[in-house]
Each structure stands twice: as C-alpha cells, then as structure tokens.
C-alpha cells in the first residue's frame, strides 16, 4: 500500500484504517479546531481585555464561581495539554534517534502529562468558591 506524501499541510495522514497514529492524527486536528476558539478567547479575555494588573485570587474565585467558566477552563486544560503533549511526542520521534533516549523521553513526558493533568483537573474540579467568598468580598 502506497503511503501518502505530505501535501504541505500537516504531516501525512497515517496509512491504514485504525491504530494509535491515525487516532492521534485526527485528535490533533479536532482538538486543534476546538482550541482555536477556546485558547484564543481565553488569551484575549485574560491577557488583552483583562491584564495581569487586574487578575488576582479574587478574580479567579469570581470566575470559577460560574459553572460555565469551570467547564470552559476544564475543556481548555485537557484539550490543550493533550494536544501539546501529543506535539511533544511527535517532536521526540523527530529528535531522539537512539531507542534508549527515546524511551527515557517518552517516560518523562508520560509522567509530566499525568502529574500536570491531575494537578490541573484538581485545581478546577475541587475548587470550592464558598471557601473564599467571605475573603474575596466582591
């Protein structure tokens, strides 16, 4: 079966009708499309409309008191992290030629992904605004 050459867009779609690489290829594009909206609006809201001058603990408490922003941020966290880590995985394939170094890099990346995914999810899901409302007072 002939493999498709890159058309000048992304890397060539992996041959075959299944497997992790094909799933990864589609995941990149579908999550990417969602992130165009999620990440760009997040950046505009948090770095242009508001700036680091306005953002503080009370600001986050206020924002995460709304289920809408909790769900928005949870989607942004998971899609951005998995999209980014998938990119790092492809980069490892490109730059690490020796199999032992590649295994070390994969292991480190897997551990980082797990730790940061859990940390991020905990930060959003277990956030309790009532714990801070009295302090925030806005």
């Amino acid at each position: 079966m002939a493999t498709r050459l890159s058309r000048g867009g992304g890397r060539a779609r992996p041959a075959g009708s299944g497997g992790f690489e094909l799933f990864s290829w589609y995941f990149f594009r579908i999550s990417g499309l969602a992130l165009v909206f999620l990440a760009v609006f997040h950046v505009i809201i948090m770095h242009v409309i508001n700036t680091v001058d306005e953002i503080d603990h009370a600001f986050v408490v206020d924002r995460w008191s709304s289920p809408f922003w909790q769900i928005y941020d949870f989607l942004l966290l998971t899609l951005a992290l998995l999209h980014g880590v998938n990119g790092a995985r492809v980069s490892i394939d490109d730059y690490f030629r020796s199999s032992s170094w590649r295994l070390a890099a994969y292991s480190a990346l897997s551990l980082i992904t797990l730790v940061f995914l859990v940390m991020g999810a905990l930060a959003i899901v277990t956030f309790d605004p009532s714990q801070f409302e009295a302090v925030a007072g806005r």
Partner: peptide
Amino acid sequence: IYIVRYGA
C-alpha cells in the same frame, strides 16, 4: 493555578 486553593 494549582496554588489558588492555598488562598489569596
């Protein structure tokens, strides 16, 4: 953002 839980 994980530090949010430790207060203002």
